[in-house]
């Protein structure tokens, strides 16, 4: 075999090996190039898909009910408890989770509120979106004195029934003595905010304020607190 032929065969082998190696190691078929990120989609995006830019407030608005929706969740012993068991009281329904730091921070305040407002027929009720055993051990450690219900998907369903379909914690629903929702507070509660809301709910219960006026008073009061806080 002449040298020229050997040289050509060597070039063929080297080029073939290199090409095949590149294709295998990249696993990069032509069809995969130009793919753009499509966050949260389950089907392959087209080349025209762009990185989505979420716009605050662009999500479909949920409907928060006028009254507490009927629901039943297990308490920490596993016994199903209907929300109707608390009829006749103003409820402070606190949705929380054990992994959530602000939820944990507001628990001492909720314990104080429960003790201070009990004789005025106010009741704090915690709904933990978490595993029951975990919630029980957590409640024991923190000596939570008010009743707790716990669940996972079922508790998320209850959160959705209150209009919070994409959950974020904590959030707290305040009702009057007739199961009407007066306010929904999203985020960690502090003493000035909770005192303001409870004072307004008390005036609703006493017949001094209608619901629209109460809601307006809460909105205005919270805005003022926020402005004061921003002013330092």
């Amino acid at each position: 075999m002449n040298r020229g032929l050997l040289a050509v065969i060597a070039v063929v082998a080297a080029a073939g090996w290199y090409g095949a190696h590149q294709l295998v190691s990249q696993g990069n078929p032509r069809g995969a190039s130009g793919i753009r990120v499509a966050v949260g989609e389950t089907s392959p995006p087209s080349a025209a898909d762009a990185i989505p830019t979420p716009v605050p407030g662009a999500l479909p608005a949920p409907r928060i009910p006028e009254r507490i929706p009927p629901f039943t969740l297990p308490d920490l012993s596993g016994r199903p408890t209907a929300i109707s068991a608390y009829d006749g009281r103003s409820l402070i329904i606190n949705f929380w989770a054990t992994w959530c730091a602000p939820c944990r921070r507001e628990i001492p305040l909720l314990k104080t509120v429960d003790a201070a407002w009990k004789d005025r027929r106010f009741q704090v009720l915690g709904i933990a979106v978490d595993r029951r055993a975990q919630v029980a051990s957590f409640a024991q450690k923190l000596r939570i004195s008010y009743p707790l219900l716990a669940g996972q998907q079922d508790a998320l369903d209850v959160a959705a029934a209150f209009g919070v379909a994409t959950p974020a914690f904590p959030f707290t629903v305040f009702t009057d003595a007739h199961r009407r929702i007066v306010a929904l507070y999203l985020g960690e509660l502090h003493r000035p905010q909770i005192n303001l809301i409870l004072g307004v709910v008390q005036r609703v219960n006493d017949g001094h304020l209608g619901l629209p006026q109460a809601r307006h008073a809460i909105d205005a009061g919270l805005a003022q607190l926020q402005a004061e806080s921003a002013a330092g």
Partner: peptide, 25 residues
Amino acid sequence: GARPWWLRGVPANGQDFLPPDAAFR
């Protein structure tokens, strides 16, 4: 008119929390 979706039409705190996909892109 863009308000956080969870506050629309509801008396609640004025905090403008973002939906999770807007908070963490």
